[in-house]
Design a protein around this nucleic acid. Sequence first.
DNA 1: TATTTATGTAAAATTAACTTGACATAATGG
DNA 2: CCATTATGTCAAGTTAATTTTACATAAATA
Lengths: 66, 66
Amino acid sequence: MKNRLKVERAEQNLSQADLADRIGVSRQTINSIETGRYVPSTILSLKLAQVFGKPVEHIFTLEATD
Amino acid sequence: MKNRLKVERAEQNLSQADLADRIGVSRQTINSIETGRYVPSTILSLKLAQVFGKPVEHIFTLEATD
DNA sequence: TATTTATGTAAAATTAACTTGACATAATGG
DNA sequence: CCATTATGTCAAGTTAATTTTACATAAATA
């Protein structure tokens, strides 16, 4: 699964820590999702989508291998 | 988090087992998501959304307590 | 230069997702 | 009736998500 978190954060000028605070997870969780170390829960991706005002599908996309 | 899986399945006339086969998880996994026993991964919700041809947000919605 | 901010990562611990196998029940079709 | 299908759930096991603590490094800034 690919993600656009880094780009979306840049557009909103949010640090990983800022974003983590907004959705109530640790900074490392955001970093790990962003760098593809693990897949967030649907609750998390809905919250992230909400923060950026965009659909989940815009931020996370399945790849061929999924 | 609420979900509309039961309704979406009914519209497509899919059993829990059918749906499970389509996205490559066990029947119990679908049942557990549907009955709210656990929250699916984002990969799973993207696949479910894909099967029903609707956005993730249409199928899963955050509640006040999330 | 010293310090603060942002990021990446790692290890240990806990919780949650998911699987397999199994059993129960209700509804339906032969 | 009997068999099948659909659903709900449970228990045990494995894997993955998430937290906390911690350390390293690069960039920005006082």
